[in-house]
Design a protein around this nucleic acid. Structure first.
Lengths: 183, 183
DNA sequence: CTAGACATGTAACGCGTTACATGATTAT
DNA sequence: ATAATCATGTAACGCGTTACATGTCTAG
């Protein structure tokens, strides 16, 4: 069984919240900040087909309510397991370097698939990995800065600032989760 | 003439700094934070081929210095024009939503292709577009927050914090460029 | 003379994007 | 009757990733 793409996982996560049609899902992508993760029907419909073929989603009795035939989809037990596995993957340095936005998605769906304690561990792992990568970036900056252009250096610093923000966010998010948990 | 991918543009930008071989370029990707933008030879070599076919880069007399044959490449006049056009594209909302990292790249290479005044305009455009998008995100948050899970909301806030950081960075970078310019 | 670093590639595969194509229903 | 909206797709195309395949020079 191959893994899930970020789009696959997002679709599963939304279907886990409520059964709905491909059109509803597409609207959720287009009309909300989820648009960041795709919005073209040429990606969403084929992805749903693949998920159906793998048994991770299934069609529910097609109600037709105005418009054309509606094929509402629901997530299956196997689908929930696949989503949980995707969310719960070990957090690696590679994720931090290449897939930071996917990490945010994984955290967003964590409440649907894991315990709050697990979410806290995710945040601790994230902060650790991000700070380790920050140290690497600062070492690189110290050695390469003299040869870089001004705009090159500023662009680099923008990336560093982004990771610093993520590290801070992980701290604050952990604190928030703990507070809400104790009440 | 089709556009350039981010990888195409990065290769052109590096070759604009110094003529070098595919292997040198690949090393630059693997060993520096450029790794964020790819590192596989299966992407870099085909991209170089395409650029050569389009006349944007050209081989220089192949010196062989240890190892195997080395095909050093240099950027052509057409290549510099293509790079400048890529860097100087109008900055759109779509860039902010889907291609934030490419915007950083464009700014990084801006000193090679444009005047400092143009770099300042880029930063002003960036800040304006990011703040406009932030307003949209906050409107969405206000309406959708009640229905969102705790981790979902926190993940959303991480994205908001990221964009806030970018807006602040654009301000600071502009100030820095102006200072260095007046001295 | 073998191992490893140097240097350049290719083949298979999957996915996403853009652009287009329908068909049905509601509003004017 | 026509336009717009709802709803679901497909086809072409390009690109990137992973994994593999060489060939050459240097160090031990």
């Amino acid at each position: 069984m191959p893994g899930l793409t970020a789009l696959d996982a997002t679709l599963l996560g939304l279907l886990d919240q409520a059964a709905q049609s491909g059109y509803d899902l597409r609207r959720a992508f287009v009309q909300t900040p989820l648009k960041h993760f795709s919005q073209s029907p040429g990606a969403i419909y084929p992805a749903l087909r693949r998920l159906e073929k793998r048994g991770l989603v299934a069609a529910v009795t097609a109600a037709r309510r105005g418009g054309r035939r509606r094929r509402a989809l629901r997530i299956t037990a196997a689908g929930r397991r696949a989503l949980a596995a995707w969310v719960g993957q070990p957090l690696t340095r590679a994720d931090v370097v290449w897939r930071m936005d996917e990490l945010a998605l994984r955290f967003a769906f964590m409440e649907q698939t894991h315990t709050p304690a697990r979410a806290l561990r995710f945040l601790a792992d994230l902060e650790r990995e991000v700070r380790a990568y920050l140290a690497e970036l600062r070492r690189y900056r110290a050695s390469a800065a003299p040869a870089m252009s001004r705009t090159g250096l500023l662009a680099f610093d923008s990336g560093v600032a982004g990771y610093e923000g993520q590290a801070r966010w992980a701290q604050v998010a952990a604190k928030t989760l703990k507070q809400r948990r104790s009440r």
